[in-house]
C-alpha cells in the first residue's frame, strides 16, 4: 500500500527534476530560433531561384532563336548547362539545409518529441540522398539518429539540450560544405548563375544589334521581349543572387558560432546571427520584387 502511494510521488519528483534540469538558456534558444528561421527563409528562396534561373535561361534562348540567325534551328539546347538533373541536385541540397533548420526549430519551439524525430528523420534522409560532391562523410548519421531518438518523456529539456548540441556539432561540417556550394552557385564562375549571366549577356547584345537594323523585321517582337528579359535577368543577378551568396556566407559563419553558443564557449557571438537575419530579411524584400 505504501509503495502504491509512493509511486506517484516518485513520478512527480522525476518530472520536477526534468523541468528543473538545465535545458537551453534564453540566449541559446534565441540564437537557435533566429538561425533556424533565417536558414529556412534563405533556403526556400534559393530553391525557388534555382528553378527560376533555369526557366529564364530557357526563355532567353527561345526568344533569341526566334530572331537570331546564329542559332541553329535544330539546336534545341535551350537550357545549356542547366539540365534537369543538375538543377534537381541543387534543389535537393537547399532542401537538406532547410530540413536541418526545421529540425533546429523543433528543439526551441516546443515541438512534441515525435515531431522532432520526424524532422530528424527527414534531415537524415536528405543527407543520405545528396550527391557525392555534396556529401561529407555521413558515418555520423547513425549516431545522429540515436541521439535524437534518445529524447524521452522525462528529463525532456536536458535531453533536448544534449540533442541539439550534438546535432549542431555533428552537422556542422556538412552544413558548411553545402553553404560553400551555395555561395559558389550564386556568385562564382562555373556556378549555376554564371549560365544566366552568360545567356542574358549574349541575348542582350544579339537583341540590341538586331533592333538597331532599320526597317520592319519579322523577329522584332521577340527581340524586344528578349532585350527586356535580358536586362531584368542581369539586374536580378546583381541584386538577388549577390544577396543569396552573401546570406549563405552569413549562414556558414552563424552555423560555426552556433556550435560555440550551444557549448557556451563564446560570451558574445551574437553578431553573426543578427547579420544573417538582417541579410535574409532584406533579401526577402528583393525576392518579392522579382517573383511578383
Amino acid at each position: 500500500m505504501k509503495k502504491l502511494k509512493l509511486f506517484p510521488a516518485v513520478i512527480a519528483l522525476a518530472l520536477l527534476a526534468g523541468c528543473a534540469s538545465p535545458g537551453l538558456n534564453k540566449q541559446q534558444k534565441r540564437a537557435v530560433s533566429s538561425y533556424a528561421q533565417s536558414a529556412q527563409a534563405l533556403n526556400g528562396m534559393a530553391g525557388q531561384e534555382f528553378l527560376a534561373i533555369r526557366n529564364q535561361v530557357i526563355e532567353l534562348n527561345k526568344l533569341t532563336a526566334a530572331f537570331s540567325p546564329t542559332w541553329d534551328a535544330e539546336d534545341k539546347d535551350f537550357d545549356r548547362a542547366l539540365n534537369v538533373v543538375d538543377t534537381r541536385t541543387r534543389v535537393k541540397a537547399v532542401a537538406t539545409l532547410r530540413s536541418y533548420a526545421e529540425l533546429l526549430s523543433g528543439f526551441v519551439d516546443d515541438w512534441e518529441d515525435d515531431r522532432i524525430k520526424g524532422a530528424a528523420a527527414n534531415f537524415v534522409s536528405n543527407v543520405r540522398d545528396l550527391d557525392s560532391n555534396q556529401k561529407i562523410d555521413d558515418n555520423y548519421l547513425n549516431v545522429f539518429e540515436k541521439v535524437v531518438t534518445g529524447i524521452g518523456r522525462i528529463f525532456v529539456e536536458k535531453k533536448k539540450k544534449e540533442a541539439v548540441v550534438a546535432v549542431v556539432a555533428m552537422s556542422h561540417e556538412q552544413v558548411a560544405h553545402l553553404c560553400d556550394l551555395l555561395i559558389k552557385d550564386f556568385s562564382g564562375v562555373g556556378g549555376y548563375t554564371s549560365q544566366l549571366v552568360t545567356t542574358a549577356s549574349q541575348t542582350l547584345v544579339a537583341a540590341d544589334s538586331y533592333l538597331r537594323k532599320s526597317g520592319e523585321q519579322p523577329g522584332r517582337d521577340s527581340a524586344v521581349e528578349a532585350y527586356d528579359l535580358g536586362q531584368l535577368a542581369l539586374q536580378r543577378h546583381a541584386e538577388l543572387h549577390a544577396g543569396i551568396s552573401e546570406a549563405a556566407e552569413h549562414m556558414k559563419q552563424a552555423n560555426t558560432d552556433l556550435v560555440d553558443v550551444l557549448r557556451e564557449k563564446k560570451p558574445q557571438p551574437f553578431k553573426s546571427f543578427a547579420h544573417f537575419k538582417l541579410t535574409v530579411e532584406a533579401l526577402a524584400e528583393t525576392a518579392q520584387y522579382y517573383t511578383r
Partner: peptide
C-alpha cells in the same frame, strides 16, 4: 578577387557598354 565575380562583372559591364555604344 575571385575569377567568378570578376568575369561576371566584366561580361555584364561589356554588355552595358555595347548597348550604349554608337553604331560603327
Amino acid at each position: 578577387s575571385t575569377i567568378g565575380k570578376n568575369l561576371n562583372e566584366v561580361l555584364m559591364d561589356t554588355t552595358m557598354v555595347i548597348l550604349f555604344a554608337p553604331d560603327g
